[in-house]
Design a protein around this nucleic acid. Structure first.
Lengths: 118, 118
DNA sequence: TCTAAGTGCTTCGAAAAAAGAATCAGATCC
DNA sequence: GGATCTGATTCTTTTTTCGAAGCACTTAGA
C-alpha cells in the first residue's frame, strides 16, 4: 500500500497526474478527517484518535505514515503530530467543502424532510 | 453500507454534522474521482467506468447509488449519469484541490528529486 | 432469424483495507 | 512497586474493493 505520489502511477490511475495522486491520498478513509482535525493545532496520537471518533489505531498509524510521506503531516520533537505548510494549504483547499456540506444538508433536508409534521 | 446523510450518524462520526457526512461520502474510494469525471458532461455507465481507469463495475454501481441518494449525481432518461446542481457545486468546492496537487507535486519533487543528474 | 457487438447492471469468489481489541515499552506520579 | 498515562505494534475478524464472468436488452448486419 504505497503512499500516493505525484509523478508515479497510483491506485486507480496510471498517469501519475498530481491530481490523481491527491485523489488517491484523500480518497483513503480518514485522510480528509485527519487533516481536518489537525488544522486546529498539533495533537498527540491518542488525542488525535479520540478526535477522529476513536478510529482504529492501526489505521491511524497507517494514515499518519501516508500523510507524513506525502509531506502533509509531520511529527514534532514532543511526538505530537501537526500539519506541515503543505498540509495547511491542503486544508485551505478543502475548506470550500464545509460550505458545500451545509448547502448539501439544506438541500437534502428540503428534499426529504425528516418526518416533520407539515 | 448506508449512504452518508447530514443529520444522521455516519461512519466515523456520531454527530451528524454535515461536514462529517460529506467526509464520509467523499472518503469512499472513487467518490471524488467520479464527481471529477462527470464534471465535463454526462457519461454512460461503461464510459464512466473507462474514464475511471476501468474501476470495478460493482463498486461503480455502489458509488453511483451513493451519490444519487446524496443528490450529487442523477441518471438521465437516456440512462447516462450526470452531476446535479448540487454535484456541480461539489465539483467547484473540490476544485482548489487541483491547484494544491500541483503545488504538492512541486514540493515533493523538490524534497526528493527523482534521481536526476545534478 | 441467427449472430455479433454494444449497452446498463448483477453476481460471486478472492484479495485488500479497515476495524477493533489486546498488548508492549517508556514516562510520570504517588 | 503499582497505577496510569503515552506512542506504537500485533493479531484476528469484518468490511470493502477488486475483477472477471455473466444476464437481459438493444442495435446492426447478413
Amino acid at each position: 500500500m504505497p503512499t500516493p505520489t505525484p509523478g508515479r502511477p497510483v491506485r486507480g490511475s496510471s498517469t501519475g497526474r498530481p491530481l490523481m495522486a491527491a485523489l488517491d491520498l484523500f480518497g483513503r478513509r480518514w485522510s480528509l478527517r485527519i487533516v481536518w482535525e489537525l488544522q486546529r493545532g498539533p495533537l498527540g496520537f491518542r488525542a488525535l484518535q479520540q478526535r477522529c471518533d476513536n478510529m482504529s489505531s492501526s489505521v491511524l498509524r497507517q494514515r499518519l505514515t501516508d500523510l507524513a510521506t506525502a509531506l502533509v503531516v509531520e511529527q514534532h520533537p514532543d511526538t505530537t503530530y501537526a500539519l506541515t505548510p503543505l498540509g495547511h494549504d491542503a486544508y485551505r483547499a478543502l475548506r470550500p467543502l464545509v460550505r458545500w456540506s451545509d448547502d448539501w444538508a439544506a438541500a437534502l433536508a428540503d428534499e426529504k424532510p425528516t418526518s416533520q409534521h407539515g
